[in-house]
Nucleic acid binder design. Structure first.
Length: 354
DNA sequence: TCTGGGGTCCTTTATCGG
DNA sequence: TCTGCCGATAAAGGACCC
């Protein structure tokens, strides 16, 4: 076993909302929105299926969600709780399919080829995963099974919630063709706009584009990658290593901020959090960056690199404040958000070995 | 009072040393 | 010495994803 490339994509149904319903069963019969303050600047993280019938969806502003459904229940995300449920889910999944790439708390890819000979067997394995997850956690999930990540992912999205879609080898392009281009992972708002403006509305149409037009519409390497995916061609292997390559903290203010001292204080607080994170995981960072978002939503960032890695909150805070001053010198204005990030990470262990 | 927070990857541009 | 080219690396921005 293991020669075939059979990959499944698993997606937990309305995960944050589903966990809240398990914790508080009265919520099950109500439209439920997990997200920010509906009277502030928050957005919807997850809405249960009841709430979705009002047109509410992820990334919508909570204020808008409240307008669409004034009797909805709003709860703040509790990530620590979701992490526990998620761990339980993935332990359960690994009991059926040992090799797994987690791409988020609520989704990931499974190397089904390791435990199934063909797509008939793969379907049985996928059903076993759904049954096991449900038995262990009372959570439901949708799965898609095919020969590559991109097809498995679109397949898992095909029958939600709780569905299973198997796309056997040889049928990938036919399966993908009717979907709107936006459904293809990698096609965001910008690419969609360009493609649709040129009359390319479906994945099938994207798959059939000639080299010339493709280059014109999606320059760079993006075009070829996306057209390949539209044809069901996706060479990405399962990524088993889970090393973080950057750490950041950012915060949107309730009201836009201009006062420099206040901004510096915010930044230093975030620098402390970043430093704590570094210290707890035994790592240092060589690059510090500051990000600001202006009232018009445009973003500017400034960064600086050191010869040696640091993990001290004061030091990171000093650098971050200097970078903020530089950004504001280049482009003054009130800010709705500031953030601090570090990258160029190295672990102490690694340093000790050198 | 539209529009979070935490990431990754890619591209372009600037800078610096042969 | 001046200029151009090349490659490496940093910095900045942008698109995208969950």
């Amino acid at each position: 076993m293991g020669a075939r490339l059979i990959v499944a994509h698993l997606d937990l149904d309305a995960f944050f909302a589903a966990v809240e319903e398990l914790e508080e069963p009265e919520l099950r019969t109500k439209p439920l929105i997990v997200g920010g303050d509906p009277h502030g600047r928050g957005v919807v993280a997850t809405a249960n299926y009841q709430a979705r019938t009002f047109g509410i969806h992820s990334a919508m502003s909570c204020a808008e969600a409240l307008r669409r459904c004034p009797h909805a229940v709003f709860v703040r995300p509790r990530h620590a709780v979701y992490r526990e449920y998620s761990q339980h889910v993935w332990e359960t999944v690994r009991g059926v399919v040992p090799t797994v790439e987690r791409t988020g708390l609520d989704e990931g890819y499974l190397d089904v080829g390791e435990v199934a000979e063909d797509f008939l067997g793969a379907r049985k394995v996928a059903e076993a995963v759904q049954t096991a997850v449900r038995a262990a956690t009372s959570l439901t999930c949708a799965l898609g099974v095919s020969t590559s990540k991109v097809v498995a992912k679109i397949a898992s999205d095909h029958r939600k919630p709780g569905g299973l879609t198997v796309v056997p080898a040889g049928t990938e392009a036919r399966f993908l063709a009717p979907f709107a281009v936006r459904r293809l992972p990698g096609v965001g708002p910008k690419a969609e706009q360009r493609l649709v403006a040129a009359g390319v509305e479906t994945v099938g149409a994207l798959a059939g584009l000639g080299d010339g037009e493709l280059k014109r519409l999606l320059p760079g390497s993006v075009g070829r990658v996306l057209r390949d995916r539209a044809r069901g061609i996706d060479p990405r292997p399962l990524e088993l290593s889970t090393e973080r390559i950057s750490i950041s903290v950012e915060n949107t203010f309730e009201r836009d901020l201009t006062d420099r001292a206040q901004l510096h204080a915010e930044l230093r607080g975030m620098a402390r959090q970043v430093a704590e994170h570094l210290q707890k995981t035994g790592r240092t960072a060589r690059t510090v960056s500051t990000k600001v978002r202006y009232t018009d939503f445009s973003i500017r960032s400034r960064s600086t690199s050191l010869r040696v890695g640091i993990d001290d909150g004061e030091q990171i805070g000093d650098l971050a404040c200097g970078l903020l001053d530089r950004a504001l010198a280049d482009r003054p204005g009130a800010l709705r958000l500031v953030g601090v990030g570090v990258s160029g990470l190295a672990s102490h262990q690694q340093l000790a070995l050198v």
